[in-house]
Design a protein around this nucleic acid. Structure first.
Lengths: 247, 247
DNA sequence: AAAATAGTGTCTGTAAGACAATATAAC
DNA sequence: GTTATATTGTCTTACAGACACTATTTT
């Protein structure tokens, strides 16, 4: 493999390479930023302020800069549009059908991100309405994205409804084996809160007893020793996510 | 949403849109074409006949044409490089770090494909050696891709070793809940053959009894009524994949 | 004391692993 | 008949769902 002649050939080839010979598509990232608030799954939408599809609601996204990694572009989109940093974010799927964007061929590498509701709501405070929207994402059957305020259905830009559907499907599947529920909660939480998050994601009720057992047996959480307070009934133990895996 | 003025604005905008304003990366597809042969997981590699990385082994791939969907580009890569059509193929992950290709910024949308060994071996017959290679993909721990012939480790081009690792990880995970083993077998097969395929993918032995029960209980296979023959011992029932899901 | 949820213990059904016993085509 | 694997059946263990009961804080 370490043939010096071919190394020289390769260097010569690269020096002469003209990247502009072939037509190339544009590459964008779009982020499905999910949270659970009021026992419902919600996603952040941005109102398009430019053509095309001006005025429609879209997932936060941006074009990928030519010297920037895909992950970095996705993180930049979250920072720019939602004012958040250090969120849990993972690549989801890449959409690239010709014609999905009327401007030109745009390939969109999509990500999903998970943030706890308090953080997200603080970050977008005062900007919801014309500019931003924390839209409800209903149960799997009814794929209508609704505004939180008046419950009206929102028409999403481009193929973003499809991106959203893929994201929800993905985290539903992932919930069964990966500890992603914690990303949607503050640092300490009760088992009831954790279960409500799981139920919101799955869109169905979960068995209280076996949920408790499963979570505790896996050693993914550890008790902080403190109790929730001021609820009018017996307080629950507060837990924290045990990153080590425990046990 | 159906404001006629904004529609006119959008049309005017699109007519004036110049897609060449921003620098754009190249977009390629690469396919991890997997099969199980000789109780081992294998993947098809292509020897690079051009610069850069001339002579190294690479996953079959191609650049995406500007009017072609990603799926179509992946299917075209399989047809062109392996001479196969109608294979099971799914998108895997998109790699796009700057610097992963020395020519220019190349974003690679990767796919994995599954083919039964007999079909793949017939398709690449006579072309293995200098041009193509059906390389062994060993157990998860030893991430050395080895040539089938002399067992020597192969050095892969670009970041293709990483792509391969992600593909194997993905089908291992998927095997637990999706009927993908059938894609790696001919139309009819015995339960032993199906188990060997699963074992090759997972890299560990599976319990014979519960494997049989699990597969049969799920109703994913149905007996053809015929028996395997010529084996020197009691013949096993031949099954076929029951696409309906059964039961 | 009443309300409301937290937390514990027990029973049951399902599914997987282990193991034993029987079945059968090729030789 | 011998061989080697197929196929069936039973026992045990692990775990999830269901349900009953006790515990504890706020009002």
């Amino acid at each position: 493999m370490a043939d010096p002649d071919s190394d020289i050939d390769e260097l010569a080839f690269l020096a002469a390479y003209d990247a502009s010979l072939y037509p190339r598509p544009s590459v964008a990232v779009d982020v499905v930023l999910l949270t659970v608030s009021g026992d419902e799954l919600r996603t952040l939408l941005v109102r398009r302020s430019e053509q095309p599809q001006l005025g429609r609601w879209a997932l936060p996204g941006t074009f990928v800069r030519v010297d920037e990694s895909l992950d970095a572009a996705a993180a930049r989109a979250v920072t720019t549009k939602a004012g958040l940093s250090e969120v849990f974010i993972e690549q989801l799927y890449t959409f690239g059908n010709p014609g999905r964007d009327p401007r030109t061929r745009v390939i969109s590498v999509t990500y999903y991100a998970l943030v706890d509701a308090a953080r997200l709501e603080a970050a977008v405070l005062g900007r919801t309405g014309r500019e931003l929207c924390l839209a409800r994402v209903p149960a799997p059957d009814a794929w209508i994205v609704a505004d939180t305020a008046d419950g009206a259905a929102l028409e999403l830009a481009f193929d973003h409804r499809e991106l959203l559907a893929v994201a929800v499907e993905r985290i539903r599947g992932k919930l069964a084996y990966a500890p992603i529920g914690f990303e949607l909660l503050p640092a300490t939480f009760t088992l009831l809160e954790l279960r409500r998050v799981h139920e919101a994601i799955l869109g169905r009720p979960l068995n209280k007893d076996s949920f408790r057992r499963t979570i505790l047996d896996r050693g993914l959480v550890e008790a902080t020793g403190e109790l929730a307070r001021g609820l009018g009934h017996r307080p629950a133990t507060l837990y924290r996510f045990a990153r080590a895996g425990g046990r």
